[in-house]
Amino acid sequence: MECPYCERRCRLDGDAVGFCRMYAAGGDGVVERFPDRWCAYAISRVESIPFYHAYPGARCLVVGTAGCNLDCRYCSNSYAAKEDPAALADILLDLSPETLVGLAKKQGCHAIVFSINEPTVSLPTLGRVSRAAKAAGLPMGCLTNGYATPLATERLGEIFSFVNVSLKGLGGAFCRKYLGIGDSAPVIRNIRELSRLCHVEVTTPVIESENDHEIDAMAAILADIDPHIPWHVFRLLPVHRMSRHDYPGIESINARLAGHRQTLPYIYFHNFIGSPWVNTACPGCGRTVITRHSLGCGGDKLDTFGLAGDRCPQCGGAVRLLGAMVAWNAKEATA
């Protein structure tokens, strides 16, 4: 039988497992090999994940499972995403959806975000968690590489109310060399579809001389889908199989972005300590309405929130926003 979850469409016959090693054939179809098993749960800011336009300031319970359907040379969570999940079984936590949601509530979290590995490899488990989270009033978000089937993408849009899709590259040669997939067409298709279903932000790690020349084309694609999509351009952190590579140049990447800030008002450039390109300006009048600071990889934080609801206090124009700003300790009193 064919795995219905990602565009690899692995054959799962007999004892075969998919590329992600998270699915196998069962009596009634494809089944998860490690349901309800988690590699970690930790508290993080929603800006760190990153989401800059969803529930600003929110305290999130960040969770992950194991496995991935891509083979990125620069995977930043390879210890969970690229290890054989079976080899991690002794340290994976066995948490029911209710227990996981209970941990989020006990720690005063406002949302649950799946962000350590790829959610497509654990969709049935995440579906169960989403039911428990919805009952508890906790929205769910995720990071995804977007290489899911249309069926699985629709499911992602049902489970998650905010999604950050990684648009890593466009050209076939880049996709084959750096991601281990044939092309990026399914990812672009899914960004378009997800932006119809839920709040979407997009992240692009930039590798100098490899995909920086695609920035113009990516900007055009995003502008066509929705020019108000927040776009997080990352300076690539060279890790995993790229750990010996140079760090990309900050000024040169930023220069490439400059021409697109008029058509895409929510371009951010970060993933390095002290980035000054992490604030939100009102698209209508240019006033800085949200400020943040960045500690680099997974360490961004809201500093000031100057909107009235989702409106600029100066010109009254709308700023893309899902949910309201949440004070960090708001749920401590009731947790």
Binding site: S76, L237, I273, G296, C297, G299
Partner: peptide, 12 residues
């Protein structure tokens, strides 16, 4: 060093 969770961000 400014390395968080073993991710090498640089120096401070």
């Amino acid at each position: 060093c400014f390395a968080r969770n073993l991710y090498n961000q640089g120096l401070m």
